[in-house]
Design a protein around this nucleic acid. Structure first.
Length: 591
RNA sequence: GCCCCGAUAGCUCAGGCGGAUAGAGCGACUGCCUCCUAAGCAGUAGGCCGCAGGUUCGAGUCCUGCUCGGGGCGCCA
């Protein structure tokens, strides 16, 4: 436990209990960062009414408790292993009843030492381990990833990494679109051009050409179209030879996805694919169950469920269409089957759908259906981690078949090219240069999407996504490179920098205090499924470090100061590396 | 028509369960490389937090209404 907010919260609660009775031991102490001290506690004002006392008096009593001798023992209990160092150096009442709290330097130093020695860097494992599904990326067979996939993929991956780091059992699930009527056409086209040519096109990601060629034949050649339709029937009937050809398309597409995920530093593997076809065999049973239990009814020839609370244009309930009137299944069916499978078969207690905002109503209906069916029952939860809609430069939606969508692969190339330009004359070794450019370019691209709230809609802006200065991935990477450089010059391994840590300069103290906030940032991301909170924290940390770097020479400092500063550098490096890793941002050794 | 999301500096965006003087980055302007990497640092300028009411000690934050923008609403996914 190195989180100062948690430590202070505990201290304030103890003070409340001692001053006003045990009933106040669990009152939210309302600890917030303060512009006037390290932190402020705002609880006094909220207690004014129930206690029938002036908030300033209440605040004064609490402040006295915080700085009295009895608080020393309490602080010692909070700071395990840090001795009985007093946490609060100063607690002052201000304004209508704010308590401005300044932490003791040696207490901060003791927490820093503890954090440095802790392989988890002060991030406590989750108290209740959960089995969690993170559904993200949404790739399709025979369709390449475009710029719109970037945020859902980056954000989902970061959420999965963070939950895993906190000790949860994470099941990554990429809902792979591998089923549907267009596959008849695609299989026929693959047959005509041959397996080798099909592989060459799909594995390299030239889906558009493949798809469009198939489409062109389908539209212009009646015989081909007829064959394609027959092929769909054969596919759905599970005809072995057709299935083999379909599998070929899937495998070739997987080859492409493996490559692009690897380059993007995304942790999805083949085993994480949750293809629509996987749920195919469950669809009939899901329909039966829902119909048998009266949750789904026949309507206009289709089997529909009408979760309460959703009305459409005509004022009538909006259906989830579980089986179309022609007997076919759509995505309502697949999603219903998927949520049932996850909750009742795999036994997960949290499902996070990292999916576009336009699917909001659809998912809310699926959740409601799952509740009606008794699949989704507390403590299990399902949530939609909304990804804002990306629009094109004109402000219009990037349409799937418009042709004007930006390929993710092209975006990555552009990002790496821009990074390469910056370091063009910096390194003589071309291999080293290209490796750095790759990490910087990809890092900038991903950070651009991870550093803003995932739900905000946005216009595709190359310059924002590929920026290399300011609050960007490269800024954070640069901080790590500078730290490594210090250790390289010193001939030291960061792992050997053990301190002890002493805080003299303002910049040293600020850095240490900032470092202690890491755990809170990580748990915040897990709770809200919002990785931009970690990105924001890391940027603040890097900024705080850079100030320290400017103001506090490390290598030229005298012995104890030098080793203390080296320890702060090592700790900063560890936190930055861990945080960037949790975001999925690659980090070059040098820049 | 109903539902969801959004509106904060010239631009792109943060703002925890309501707390003091609303913060960053970019762009603009002024300084800083005999010094561990200047992809950096320090500073200046820049605000009717869409509009109008309400709730209360206190509202960018909560409630109501409105304006504007985006999305969704039966056999595509």
């Amino acid at each position: 436990m190195t989180d100062p907010e948690a430590a202070l919260g505990s201290l304030v609660q103890k003070a409340l209990a001692a001053e006003f009775g045990a009933g106040y031991a669990s009152t939210d102490p309302l600890i917030r960062p303060s512009g006037f001290a390290d932190f402020q506690a705002n609880v006094a004002m909220s207690l004014s009414k129930p206690l029938r006392r002036s908030p300033r008096d209440i605040a004064g009593d609490i402040a006295d408790r915080l700085t009295s001798a009895s608080a020393v023992a309490a602080a010692g209990a909070v700071a395990v292993g840090a001795g009985a160092a007093k946490a609060v150096a100063k607690a002052e009442v201000s304004g209508p009843g704010f308590i401005n709290i300044t932490l003791a330097d040696d207490w901060i130093a003791a927490q820093s030492a503890q954090q440095l020695a802790d392989p988890r860097l002060g991030v406590a494992p989750a108290e209740h381990r959960q089995r969690v599904v993170v559904d993200y990326s949404g790739p399709n067979v025979a369709k390449e990833l475009h710029a719109g996939h970037l945020r859902a993929t980056s954000v989902g991956d970061a959420i999965a990494r963070v939950l895993e780091y906190l000790g949860h059992e994470v099941i990554r699930a990429a809902h792979l679109g591998d089923w549907g009527t267009q596959f008849g056409m695609l299989i026929e086209h693959a047959l005509e051009i041959g397996e080798r040519a099909t592989y060459d096109q799909l594995a390299s990601g030239e889906f558009t050409a493949f798809y469009q060629a198939a489409r062109a034949k389908f539209d212009s050649d009646p015989a081909f179209a007829d064959q394609a339709r027959k092929r769909v029937v054969q596919l759905q009937a599970g005809e072995p030879d057709t299935i083999r050809l379909w599998q070929l398309l899937v495998d070739d597409s997987m080859e492409y996805l493996r490559k692009i995920y690897a380059r993007l530093n995304i942790t999805l593997t083949d085993a994480d694919m949750a293809p629509e076809s996987f749920y195919n065999s469950m669809l009939g049973d899901v329909c039966d169950e829902l119909e048998r239990r009266g949750i789904a009814v026949m309507s206009d020839g289709a089997l529909c469920a009408f979760p309460p609370g959703f009305t459409g244009r005509d004022g009538k309930p909006v259906p989830l269409m579980l089986r179309k009137s022609d007997g076919g299944y759509g995505y309502d069916s697949t999603d219903a089957a998927a949520i049932r499978y996850r909750l009742t078969e795999i036994g997960v207690t949290r499902i996070i759908y990292v999916v576009g905002a336009e699917q909001s109503q659809h998912l809310q209906m699926i959740f409601e259906l799952a509740r009606q069916a008794g699949w989704l029952v507390p403590p299990a939860t399902a949530e939609h981690a909304v990804i804002g809609l990306m629009t094109g430069p004109g402000g219009q939606r990037l349409r799937t078949r418009s042709g004007e969508q930006v390929k993710l692969a092209d975006l990555m190339d552009e990002a790496v090219d821009r990074a390469a330009t910056v370091i063009a004359d910096r390194y003589s070794d071309p291999l080293q240069r290209s490796q750095i450019a790759e990490a910087v370019g990809i890092g900038a691209l991903k950070y651009g999407d991870l550093s803003v709230a995932r739900a905000s809609g946005y216009v595709l802006d190359f310059d924002r996504l590929l920026a290399l200065t300011g609050n960007t991935g490269p800024y954070l990477q640069y901080a790590t490179a500078r730290i490594r450089s210090i250790f390289a010059r010193a001939g030291l391994d960061p792992a050997d920098a053990a301190g002890p840590i002493a805080l003299g300069e303002v910049a040293e103290r600020a850095l240490a205090l900032r470092l202690l906030g890491f755990g809170r940032a990580v748990t915040d991301v897990a709770a809200t499924a919002e990785p931009h909170k970690l990105a924001g924290y890391l940027f603040e940390l890097a900024s705080t470090f850079t100030v320290f770097y400017e103001q506090c020479p490390v290598l030229s400092a005298a012995d104890e100061t030098r080793s203390s500063r080296l320890a702060l550098c090592a700790l900063t490096l560890n936190v930055l590396m861990t945080g960037l890793h949790l975001l999925g941002i690659p980090v070059p050794d040098r820049m």
